[in-house]
C-alpha cells in the first residue's frame, strides 16, 4: 500500500549532495512530495527531510540506496504516525477586500493563522500546520481574491529519536567497527524503522 513516508537524511554539507540524493528518486521515476534541507542539531551536519508516497518495500530500498551515498551518515524512514511534522504557508490577499468582506479575527482564530504584513494594497497571512489546515485556509482566502500562495516543504521531528544524535556522532569514531549495528530491521520494527 502506498502511503506517505518521511525520510530524514543526515549528511555532510557538501556541494552536489542534493543532486546525489535527488537522482536516487528520479532514476526510479519516483516523484518527491516535498524536499527540505536544513542544518541539523549537530554542527556541520546537514539534515534533509524528504516526503515520498510509496510502498514500504520501495521506500526501504530507497533508504538503503541513499545510505549508500558516501557522504550520507544515516537515513530514518518514518510513517506519519511516527513523526511530528509541520509545514508553513504564506498567503497574499488584497487588503481592501479582506478587510471589507472577511471577519479577519475569526479567520485567524479558526485557522491558527497569523498576519505577517498589513499594507494598503495587500496583507500577508501565515499559517503553520499540516495539509488540511493549510488547504482549508487556502480555500477560504481564495474567496477574497488570493494574489499569491506558497507552501514550504515538510519538516519533521521523529517522535522516538532519542538515539539519533548519538548514532550519527558515533560514526565519526575512528574505528567504525565499534559503531552501532545497522541490520535491526530483521527484528520486528521496534521504536523506529532504521537500517
Amino acid at each position: 500500500m502506498k502511503q506517505e513516508h518521511t525520510l530524514t537524511v543526515y549528511s555532510e554539507n557538501q556541494v552536489g549532495l542534493l543532486n546525489k540524493i535527488a537522482i536516487i528518486f528520479s532514476r526510479r521515476k519516483i516523484n518527491l512530495e516535498s524536499f527540505n534541507s536544513s542544518p541539523s542539531e549537530i554542527e556541520k551536519i546537514y539534515r534533509f527531510t524528504i516526503v515520498v508516497k510509496e510502498t514500504e518495500e520501495v521506500v526501504r530500498n530507497l533508504v538503503r540506496q541513499i545510505e549508500k551515498i558516501v557522504d550520507v551518515f544515516k537515513v530514518f524512514n518514518n510513517t506519519n504516525d511516527e513523526i511530528i511534522w509541520q509545514q508553513i504557508a504564506l498567503y497574499k490577499v488584497p487588503t481592501s477586500i479582506i478587510m471589507k468582506d472577511a471577519k479577519v479575527e475569526r479567520l485567524l482564530r479558526q485557522f491558527g493563522a497569523n498576519v505577517v504584513v498589513i499594507r494598503n494594497d495587500y496583507t500577508v497571512f501565515e499559517a503553520t500546520g499540516q495539509d488540511d489546515e493549510i488547504n482549508n485556509l487556502l480555500k477560504e482566502l481564495d474567496k477574497y481574491g488570493l494574489i499569491e500562495f506558497v507552501r514550504s516543504s515538510r519538516i519533521a521531528i521523529i517522535k522516538s529519536s532519542e538515539g539519533v544524535h548519538k548514532q550519527v556522532l558515533d560514526m565519526q569514531k575512528n574505528d567504525p567497527r565499534k559503531s552501532p549495528i545497522n541490520n535491526e530491521y530483521l527484528n520486528s520494527k521496534s521504536k523506529i524503522f532504521q537500517m
Partner: peptide
Amino acid sequence: HVRSYRAEPIVR
C-alpha cells in the same frame, strides 16, 4: 576512515 561512510557492515 571517512566519518559518513561505513565500508563494511558489522557482522552479527
